Amino acid sequence: MQASKRLALVAGETSGDLLAGLLLSGVRQRWPELQAFGIGGPQMLAQGFEAWWPSDKLAVRGYVEVLRHYREIVGIRTALQQRLLASSRPDVFIGVDAPDFNLDLEANLRQAGIRTVHFVCPSIWAWRADRVDKIRRSADHVLCIFPFEPELLAQHGIAATYVGHPLANVIPLVPDRAAARARLGLGDRETVVAVLPGSRASEVQYLAARFFATAARLAKARPGMRFVVPAMPVLRERIEAAIRDAGVEGAVMVVTGQSHTVLAACDVTLIASGTATLEAALFKRPMVIAYNMNWLSWQIMRRKQLQPWVGLPNILCNDFVVPELLQDAATPEAMSQAVLAWLDAPAKISALQQRFTELHHTLRRDTAQLATDAIEQVLEG
C-alpha cells in the first residue's frame, strides 16, 4: 500500500460533517499523507480537509424545500463530478449520508472507474425501500452504523460492514451532568429543558415558533424552569427572534454550538427528529421528539414510511420509548404536556436510561478502525 491516498468526500449537513470528521481522524492515522477534499464542514476542516464547497450548501430537507434549491444543488454536483473525473481524480470517493446527492454521484463515478464507499446506509428499513437498487448500482461498499443493516443489504447483493456509530464513542457512557451545568452556569437543582429546533434553516422555520411557544407554556406552569438552546451560528439570529416573539427571553439561554454540553446538562429535551435524537439517547436523556414541515413534503414522506416510528431512539428500540409529535400533532399544548409528563415520572426516566445504556453498548465499536479497514479492502479491489 502506498503511503499517500487521495480521498474525495461529501458530507451534506451538520451530522454528516461530524461523522466524516471522525472518519477522517482514523483514516489519517492509516495514511498520514492523506489528501482529502470535496464538500465538508468545520469538523472535517479540523482534520485537514480541503472543502471546495461548505456542507451547509446541501443542508436542505423535504421535497418542496429541495425543489427551491434544486438548480444550485445540481450545479454543485455537476461541477464536483467534473472536477473529480478530470484534475482531481481520487483513489476512492466516500459519500457520507446525503443519499439524494451522493448516490447518483457515486453511480457516475463508479461507472467511470472510481471506487465508491457510502457511509451511513440509507434508511431503506424505514422508508423508500425502492432505493436499494440505486445503492447496489452506486456503492462498492456500504459502511453501516446500525448492526442489523449489513444482513439486510447482503440480501440484495450489496457488500457492507457494521462499523458502529461514531457518536457512541464520543459520548461517555455516564455523562457528567454536574460538569456540564457548571460550564453553562446552571444550578444543580434547576429544572433544565434543552430545546433543539434543528440544524437546518427549514427546520427552524417550521419548528422554532412552536418550540418557544411550548417553552412559554412550561415557564408559566413551572416558574423558574430554565431553557437552553444550542444554536448553529448561522441560525442564531432566527432563533433569538423566535424567542423574543414568544416572550421568554428571560428564561432562555442561547449558546453557540455546545449541543453535547447542553444535552448532558438537561433534565429533558424538546428536540427535532433527526440525528440529534440519537445523541440525546446516548446522553440517556428523556425527550419529546417533534417535527413539522411543508405540508406537501409531509404528505409525500408519510406515504413512503415503512415503520410506525420516525425517531431514531424508537426505531432502534423497536418501540415508542419516547413520544413523537409530528406535523399537526406538534402543538405547544401537546409538547408542553409531554415534557411535564417526563418531569413527573422519575421511575419511567430510570427505566428509559437503562434501555438507552444497553443501546449505547450495542452501538459502541472502534468505528474509525473498522471503517478504515473496509476502505482499505475496497482500495485493494
Score class of each variant (00 low, 15 high):
58 L>T: 01
265 A>Y: 09
318 N>H: 14
377 Q>K: 15
106 E>Y: 05
325 L>E: 05
177 R>N: 09
279 E>A: 04
224 G>N: 13
335 M>L: 13
134 K>W: 12
373 D>M: 03
321 V>F: 07
109 L>F: 08
380 E>S: 13
190 E>T: 08
257 G>E: 02
225 M>G: 04
187 G>A: 10
3 A>R: 06
266 C>A: 14
216 A>F: 13
249 E>H: 14
250 G>I: 15
343 L>D: 03
152 L>P: 11
66 V>A: 15
319 D>I: 01
251 A>K: 10
140 D>E: 13
101 F>T: 10
340 L>D: 04
215 A>M: 10
237 E>Y: 13
50 E>L: 15
61 R>S: 15
338 A>N: 05
287 M>C: 09
129 A>M: 12
318 N>E: 10
114 I>A: 06
379 L>T: 12
285 R>T: 13
250 G>L: 10
183 R>Y: 00
197 P>T: 11
114 I>N: 06
83 R>L: 13
100 D>F: 12
136 R>L: 08
27 V>E: 02
377 Q>T: 13
229 V>E: 01
191 T>D: 00
25 S>V: 05
359 L>R: 03
38 G>R: 00
176 D>M: 10
193 V>L: 07
377 Q>H: 10
125 W>H: 08
250 G>Q: 14
101 F>W: 11
136 R>A: 15
2 Q>M: 02
328 D>M: 05
183 R>W: 00
8 A>G: 12
365 R>I: 00
161 T>G: 02
119 F>V: 00
100 D>Q: 13
273 S>V: 08
336 S>V: 04
21 G>W: 02
376 E>S: 12
179 A>H: 13
119 F>E: 08
238 R>P: 00
368 A>I: 07
9 L>N: 07
370 L>I: 04
230 P>W: 07
